[in-house]
């Protein structure tokens, strides 16, 4: 019980802040509660299948397979798989981190995991169609082309700025 309280203390403190804001500035308070509720509902509708797929991935794909397809020596194939996995996703970026954790645990290369995160963040297919509808095809395609270059550059930057010791620390974080 105490453990549970400790884990959720930041959330509880923020909730208290929100209640105080709601009492002093009813308009902003009500609006923020509504936004929080809408976001919560959105999350509840999108997140379950992501975590179920994550669980299935964890149980059915063994380490050797993951290493073969997305590990250090998987080459261009590994990059493409990571990219497609990320692009086929739905849901906010923070849902990608637990999936990335499973990939790391199973031996994906850090570079490929960063590609996956990059693709999830910005080249998700459903989001692209929506972007094109709102902001036009030229804008979307230009941004998409730039993003693909950017995803690779960001992954390469992160990968090269981390020493092998630091990379090992990241793998250790996700050993569980």
């Amino acid at each position: 019980m105490k453990e549970l309280f400790k884990r959720y203390r930041v959330f509880l403190a923020l909730l208290a802040v929100n209640v105080v804001v709601g009492l002093t500035l009813p308009e902003i308070g009500a609006k923020s509660f509504e936004l929080t509720r809408n976001n919560l509902l959105e999350m509840i509708s999108v997140i379950p299948p992501i975590f179920v797929l994550l669980g299935l991935l964890d149980v059915w794909v063994d380490r050797a397979t993951m290493i073969r397809y997305t590990g250090k020596r998987s080459g261009l194939k590994g990059v493409l798989i990571a990219f497609l996995l990320g692009s086929a996703a739905a849901g906010p970026l923070y849902a990608a981190f637990p999936v990335a954790a499973v990939m790391l645990k199973k031996g994906s290369s850090l570079f490929n995991v960063f590609i996956f995160i990059g693709a999830w963040s910005t080249t998700k297919i459903p989001l692209l169609t929506f972007e094109a509808a709102s902001l036009g095809l030229t804008f979307t395609l230009t941004r998409l082309m730039l993003s693909i270059i950017g995803i690779v550059l960001i992954a390469a930057t992160a990968d090269s700025l981390l020493t092998s010791g630091q990379q090992q620390e990241i793998y250790d974080l996700n050993r569980n």
Binding site: F11, N18, S32, F33, T36, V102
Partner: peptide, 23 residues
């Protein structure tokens, strides 16, 4: 079980983030 564990693992931060975004 793993799906639930991964989810519960990020839930505290996740709820906190939702409130921050709302505010």
């Amino acid at each position: 079980k793993k799906a639930w564990k991964s989810f519960e693992n990020i839930l505290p931060q996740f709820l906190a983030i939702l409130i921050i975004i709302g505010l």
